[in-house]
């Protein structure tokens, strides 16, 4: 089972995503945006960073990269697609996820740990979490303020598309626990079919306690469970070799 990590000029989290997959026992490789084929990948991760310098709007130009036609087909065929940070921005620009991401409400680039509560575990990216589990992930972005108009938002909530919401240490909700102004505290969102998910925080940055939190690891373990059915990985120690460039 192989995960393709799609990256663009300006991406900067693709190595971390490959590392995270390999750490939990998944085969993973980089997929350059100019590729026109996905070479039989079983799942895709759109990596974080600043594709095309965030020109025009974040993700606006990356959505037209050659590989994206295949990504679109892969997603509509039900293949698991995870968009992290810039990857989330690309997914909403493409329309694979509803809504849009605006500048953070405080107009600040926010690089900090943030907490979020898992609401849905019937997902290829969250099945290893417990429902209600509170995660501590790292985020670093300026345009992460999720927005959807009233009708779209009602539709999203009705179809159980909110996978995680920003919260306080004990699950409290409110503006003081919402780091970017996202409407309804939405922190992770999926499409109606459930196979495409996006989030602004970076699970690939928090894989071991030494990094302040290991809460991101279970997102990759979830993907392994979804792809292989295996609940435990062979690799339990940090890998020495990171991805080939």
């Amino acid at each position: 089972m192989r995960v393709g990590v799609v990256y663009y000029p300006g991406s900067n989290c693709e190595q971390d995503a490959v590392y995270a997959c390999r750490l939990v026992g998944l085969d993973a490789e980089l997929v350059w945006h100019k590729q026109e084929s996905l070479d039989g990948c079983d799942a895709l991760i759109l990596a974080g960073g600043f594709s095309y310098g965030d020109h025009l709007r974040c993700g606006a130009i990356a959505q037209f990269s050659p590989v994206m036609k295949q990504v679109e087909r892969f997603a509509s065929d039900g293949g698991p697609v995870l968009g992290i940070c810039n990857g989330f921005q690309i997914l909403v620009e493409m329309g694979l996820l509803p809504g849009a991401l605006l500048a953070n409400d405080g107009l600040k680039f926010r690089c900090q740990d943030t907490r979020m509560q898992v609401e849905k575990t019937d997902s290829p990216f969250t099945n290893a979490y417990a429902e209600g589990q509170i995660l501590r992930l790292n985020m670093a972005h300026y345009e992460g303020n999720y927005f959807a108009d009233e009708a779209t938002l009602a539709d999203i909530e009705q179809h159980q598309q909110v996978v995680m919401r920003f919260c306080g240490p004990n699950g409290e909700r409110g503006a003081e626990h919402n780091p970017n102004g996202s409407i309804n505290d939405i922190a992770a969102l999926r499409n109606r079919a459930g196979n495409v998910m996006g989030l602004m925080p970076h699970p690939e940055r928090v894989l071991t306690p030494e990094l302040g939190s290991a809460d991101g690891r279970l997102m990759f373990e979830s993907l392994r469970v979804a792809l292989t059915g295996m609940a435990s990985a062979e690799n339990t120690e940090p890998l020495e070799v990171i991805a080939d460039v």
Partner: peptide, 8 residues
């Protein structure tokens, strides 16, 4: 197609 995002 590109210059505006009709969602926002």
């Amino acid at each position: 197609d590109l210059l505006a995002n009709p969602v926002i």
